[in-house]
């Protein structure tokens, strides 16, 4: 009895989460998708390193850090673009995107230098 109620609760929780998330604007969803993409790419590289070994260590680091850095920057973008976030109310999303592009270019310059 207790068990099925837990499952039900969980199901109800997921249901509510999904319905709540579906209300999220599409552009935020795109950013979420992008973050997921970056994180999974990083995870695959970590798995590869675990399987093969860390020989070109700087390459591994740049690969992972590139993904992680992109993900972090994307999250920052999401924070700024989110309309419900009152803190960045005055900041236009275009300005946030420009920041995102600039930061990405600088990050990848460093990554490329480090790649070896």
């Amino acid at each position: 009895m207790g068990k099925s109620s837990t499952t039900k609760d969980a199901q109800a929780l997921f249901q509510s989460l999904r319905s709540a998330y579906s209300a999220t604007p599409t552009n935020l969803k795109i950013i979420d998708l992008y973050v997921m993409f970056a994180v999974f790419t990083a995870l695959i590289q970590v798995v590869y390193m675990a399987v093969v070994g860390s020989f070109p260590f700087n390459s591994f680091l740049s690969g992972v850090l590139s993904c992680v850095g992109t993900a972090v920057l994307a999250i920052c973008l999401r924070i700024q673009v989110n309309k419900e976030n009152k803190e960045f109310k005055d900041l236009p999303p275009e300005r946030a995107f420009a920041d995102f592009v600039l930061c990405n270019l600088v990050l990848h310059l460093v990554i490329m230098n480090f790649l070896g």
């Binding site: 998708l33 992008y34 997921m36 993409f37 999974f40 695959i44 590289q45 590869y48 399987v51």
Partner: peptide
């Protein structure tokens, strides 16, 4: 194989 695997998330994206 891992190269292909890395491309998978991009496909998913």
């Amino acid at each position: 194989a891992f190269l292909a695997l890395v491309l998978l998330p991009f496909l998913g994206f």
